[in-house]
Write a protein that binds this DNA or RNA. Structure first.
Length: 717
RNA sequence: GCCCGAGUGGCGGAACCGGUAGACGCUGCGGACUUAAAAUCCGCUGAUCUUCGAUCGUGCGGGUUCGAUUCCCGCCUCGGGCACCA
């Protein structure tokens, strides 16, 4: 043992040993309890940042603990290697994205090794490798055959900076999640996955995820957004139905007008005859997403000059086009009950539409909720506390009873039906991008869109193209585009769009079980390892990645590739690493490069600092003094062990012969063991585990008993 | 607006099932060692006061309890998510 603690030398030696002996290489051992620890794989942006260091340290600490418990622990690592930054780098430097990505991965692999992470490097993968994405393409063609994939020309979110289509999930406050540019609406034909077919199960199974933070489950529940309600047919004068969706059929008798979206067929028809309507449609189209979010969302609309007949009362109510009605939710039309809905009320007062109370506070109209003729005081009725009034057969009923009664009446008349709607939309997965996984489709003039047969997979992405900033270079690559139709053999063209990179990262966790399997997507090894026992990653993936990965797990299950319903048993979402109260970023100039800290303090000091300074799920404030403190503790610990070892071997511990002081120290040692074990296994409270160790080491440093049994107790400690 | 979290010393945080508030670390101050400095080691470091002691103190106001950072009610502030979803 060296006299002085030299972190670089110690770490180099340990890491070399681990590598030479393949210490963390694992194979399936059916008799042994397994533990699959996984951290979210990095995008190869160039170098690791502190967020990575924290993420991978937490995962590694959990993995190593489970290993010490005697479990067969798999901890793999790879790269989420497709994506936009590679193309942006290509624009700047002229290097092919493949080259840039490869170089970054090589450098970052070295950094990951220097961090001393217990990875099974034999299982590493990168999503840009044909051996990997081949199976993604294969699964897509299977889903195609099963009707879970469709192509649809639709209005999409167009990011004018990144020149690509974004999923709803990738639009944040009307801006692209990566570029920050204001998103425009464009009509583009693209491929969709029917994630809405799984909406119910994705929602219901959240209840099974006891090892997930409530915050993440709540976010996913809200994102899926299940609403139970009724579809109600109002009758237009030509007898055709105008269908609305409502979750409040108890307020049906309070309807005083209908509102439809600007893109609704009824609006578009009226626009042909009425210049005012046409102007409204044009205005709404122009303002689009951007203005709706930036401005205060003022309620605006225009009458269509059309009336519809109420299915229960037979009353005729006017139909308006309104900017607050979304074409993409429900039927693009709503019934308005201004007395009990804030939005409907704002619209009605603005345009002088009638307001009719149909809900009364339980126990009668009291002052707070009274509607007097001079001053309409709308009550945005809570489902829990209202009783229906002025509503014929619904009078006196509460929400639930009125719902049932209205549903029954409408069903009997054939003018309504129960229906569940979701906020969740199908997942648009096409990207007009080069550096991604090619969508395995061939367009043939005779056969249409034809999936590439399994024997012809993978559709390999050419690695040598360099984007020039004007569209997708794949589309200009004749060698890639021109092909033969797999069905009829005629000349055909390949799809040049690539998958959203979220597709790549939706199943990598399963592939780590068998990355070398060249005849199947997954094999029996995945049955051994799945599900992931512990997943660790940033809270920023609470919705997108984690929802998509859950979806893919269910798709793979339904394809017979897995028997597991949920991919991640336990989830830990680690907090961000901040410096001076702000997220580290180049633009703020507050970045601390892990590489510098590795050189100055060593991997163990950074790791210790990160695990000690804050609980894993909380934000962590970077502190140079804190790093020094961690390094100081390690030096003291080293010296403690070194001093003891230098004094020679201690005799065997004889518990029966210990004096009071020796017994007390021993008791403290075992108390610490119990506490640390509990902190690791149950609480995931690493900061207190470390504090307990520091406390013990402070005690040991002051231990002056050099008698044979005094040294024996110290040695045990 | 709605839905989640969280508010404890100068700072990061601890107190796990209602039982010594502030573990552990950082910072600061004092001391030892040194010609000196760094490093290291030792001590002190919530506030106030009449300082060998006492009082107050966990965002604010109430409540339950022998006892509340912890439980209940009502607020305030900060952070996150969703946001015209009918």
């Amino acid at each position: 043992m060296q006299k002085e603690y030299n972190p670089q030398a110690v770490e180099r030696e340990a890491q070399r040993y681990w590598e030479d002996h393949a210490c963390f290489h694992v194979v399936e051992e059916p008799g042994k309890p397994k533990f699959y620890a996984l951290s979210m794989f990095p995008y190869p942006s160039g170098r690791l940042h502190m967020g990575h260091v924290r993420n991978y340290t937490i995962g590694d600490v959990i993995a190593r603990y489970q290993r010490m418990l005697g479990k067969n622990v798999l901890q793999p690592i790879g790269f989420d290697a497709f994506g936009l930054p590679a193309e942006n780098a290509a624009l700047k430097s002229g290097t092919a994205p493949a080259e840039w990505t490869d170089a970054n991965m090589a450098y970052m692999r070295g950094q990951l090794r220097q961090l001393g992470l217990a990875y099974d490097w034999s299982r590493t993968l990168a999503t840009c490798q044909p051996e990997y994405y081949r199976w993604e393409q294969w699964l897509f063609t299977r889903l195609f055959k099963n009707g879970l994939v469709y192509r649809k020309a639709s209005v999409v979110n167009w990011d004018p900076v990144d020149q690509t289509v974004l999923a709803n999930e990738q639009v944040v406050d009307g801006r692209g999640w990566r570029s920050g540019a204001v998103v425009e609406q464009r009509e583009v034909a693209q491929w969709f996955l029917r994630i809405t077919d799984y909406a119910e199960e994705l929602l219901a199974d959240l209840d099974k995820l006891e090892g997930w933070p409530d915050a993440v489950k709540t976010m996913q529940r809200n994102w899926i957004g299940r609403s139970e309600g009724l579809e109600v047919d109002f009758a237009l004068d030509d007898g055709s139905p105008l269908t609305v969706f409502t979750t409040r059929p108890d307020t049906l008798y309070g309807v005083t007008y209908l509102a439809v979206a600007a893109q609704h067929p009824l609006t578009l028809a009226a626009a042909k005859k009425d210049a005012r309507v046409a102007a409204f449609v044009e205005e709404t189209r122009r303002s689009g997403v951007a203005e709706a979010t930036l401005e205060t969302m003022e309620k605006r609309g225009v009458p269509l000059g059309v009336e519809a007949t109420h299915p229960l009362t037979g009353e005729r109510v006017p139909v308006w086009a309104a900017n607050f009605v979304l074409m993409s939710y429900g039927s693009g039309a709503v019934m308005a009950v201004p007395a009990h809905d804030e939005r409907d009320f704002a619209f009605a007062t603005r345009y002088g539409l009638p307001i009719r109370q149909v809900i009364e506070h339980r126990g009668g109209a009291d002052g707070e909720y009274r509607f007097d003729a001079s001053r309409w005081q709308p009550w945005y009725a809570d489902k829990q506390v209202g009783l229906v009034v002025h509503s014929g057969p619904l009078d006196g009923l509460d929400y639930r009873a009125a719902f049932e009664r209205a549903a029954a009446e409408l069903e009997a008349k054939g003018r309504g039906r129960r229906r569940v709607n979701y906020r969740l939309r199908d997942w648009g997965i096409s990207r007009q991008r080069y550096w991604g996984c090619p969508i395995p489709i061939v367009y043939c003039d005779h056969c249409g869109a034809v999936p590439v047969p399994e024997a012809d997979l993978p559709v390999v992405l050419p690695r040598n193209l360099v984007p020039d900033g004007h569209g997708n270079p794949l589309a200009k690559d004749a060698e890639f585009v021109n092909c033969r139709c797999p069905q009829c053999g005629a000349a055909a063209r390949r799809e040049t769009d690539t998958f959203d990179t979220f597709v790549d990262s939706s199943w990598y966790f399963a592939r780590y079980a068998c990355p070398d399997q060249h005849t199947r997507m997954l094999d029996e090894r995945s049955a051994y390892w799945l599900p992931v026992d512990q997943y660790v990653g940033g809270i920023e993936h609470a919705i997108l990645h984690l929802l998509y990965a859950r979806f893919f797990q269910k798709l793979m299950r339904d394809e017979g590739l897995s028997r597991v319903d949920e991919p991640f048993t336990r989830l830990l979402t680690q907090g961000m690493v901040l410096k001076d109260g702000a997220k580290m970023s180049k633009s703020k100039g507050n970045v601390v490069d892990p590489q510098d800290i590795l050189a100055s303090h060593g991997a163990d000091a950074v790791r210790l600092f990160m695990m000690f300074t804050a609980p894993p799920e909380q934000t962590l404030e970077w502190s140079d003094a804190g790093i020094d403190g961690a390094a100081r503790f390690l030096r003291r610990l080293w010296k403690l062990v070194e001093d003891h070892a230098a004094a020679g071997a201690a005799p065997a511990l004889d518990a029966a012969s210990l004096d009071a002081g020796q017994r007390e120290l021993r008791r403290h040692v075992h108390d610490t063991l119990a506490k640390v074990s509990d902190d690791y296994a149950r609480r995931y409270s690493f900061n207190t585990a470390i504090a307990a160790c520091m406390e013990l080491s402070n005690l040991l440093q002051r231990w002056t008993d050099t008698s044979p049994q005094g040294r024996a107790v110290l040695q045990e400690a």
